[in-house]
Simulated assay, not measured.
Amino acid sequence: MAAGILSVGLHLIGREALSLVALAVAGSLWLLLGAEFTARLAGDRGRFRADADTPAGLTAVAATTVIGCRVSELGRQDASAALLVLAAVLWPGLTYHVVRHWRRRMPGVAFLVCVATQGLAVLAAVLAAALRLPWLDRAALAAFCLGLLLYVLALAHFDLREVAGGAGDHWVAGGALSLCALTAAKLTASPVWTGPVHTALRTAALATLALSLAWYAVLLAAEVRHPRTHYDVRRWATVFPLGMTATACLAAAQPTGIGWLRPLGTALLWIAVASCLLTLAALLSSRRARRPPPAR
Score class of each variant (00 low, 15 high):
residue 50 A to I: 07
residue 30 W to E: 09
residue 266 T to A: 14
residue 184 A to L: 09
residue 114 C to F: 09
residue 124 A to M: 07
residue 241 P to H: 06
residue 63 A to R: 01
residue 51 D to R: 15
residue 224 V to Q: 08
residue 64 T to D: 05
residue 247 T to Q: 05
residue 36 E to C: 05
residue 185 A to C: 07
residue 184 A to G: 04
residue 93 G to V: 10
residue 124 A to C: 12
residue 219 L to C: 05
residue 268 L to A: 09
residue 210 A to N: 13
residue 44 D to G: 10
residue 232 D to H: 15
residue 250 L to P: 03
residue 173 A to I: 05
residue 66 V to H: 01
residue 165 G to T: 08
residue 289 A to M: 11
residue 273 V to Q: 04
residue 27 G to P: 03
residue 27 G to E: 00
residue 153 L to S: 11
residue 33 L to H: 10
residue 70 R to I: 07
residue 145 C to W: 09
residue 180 C to E: 14
residue 138 R to H: 14
residue 104 R to G: 09
residue 252 A to G: 07
residue 269 L to M: 11
residue 50 A to S: 15
residue 42 A to H: 13
residue 231 Y to N: 04
residue 120 L to N: 03
residue 235 R to F: 03
residue 51 D to S: 14
residue 180 C to V: 14
residue 42 A to G: 06
residue 75 G to D: 07
residue 113 V to P: 05
residue 176 A to E: 11
residue 152 V to A: 15
residue 48 F to V: 07
residue 39 A to N: 13
residue 148 L to V: 12
residue 17 A to E: 06
residue 88 A to Y: 02
residue 255 P to H: 12
residue 248 A to F: 14
residue 119 G to V: 12
residue 125 A to G: 04
residue 250 L to R: 12
residue 48 F to P: 00
residue 45 R to I: 08
residue 120 L to A: 01
residue 198 H to P: 03
residue 120 L to K: 03
residue 3 A to Y: 12
residue 237 A to S: 13
residue 83 L to K: 01
residue 67 I to F: 10
residue 177 L to N: 03
residue 84 L to T: 06
residue 124 A to N: 05
residue 90 L to V: 13
residue 85 V to P: 00
residue 172 V to Q: 15
residue 214 A to D: 10
residue 79 A to G: 15
residue 132 R to I: 02
residue 133 L to A: 13
residue 50 A to W: 14
residue 282 A to W: 05
residue 152 V to L: 15
residue 95 T to G: 13
residue 9 G to H: 08
residue 131 L to K: 10
residue 280 L to K: 01
residue 275 S to E: 13
residue 10 L to H: 06
residue 126 V to K: 09
residue 260 W to N: 04
residue 199 T to Y: 02
residue 114 C to E: 14
residue 124 A to K: 00
residue 270 W to D: 05
residue 144 F to E: 10
residue 78 D to L: 03
residue 196 P to R: 05
residue 265 G to T: 03
residue 296 R to T: 11
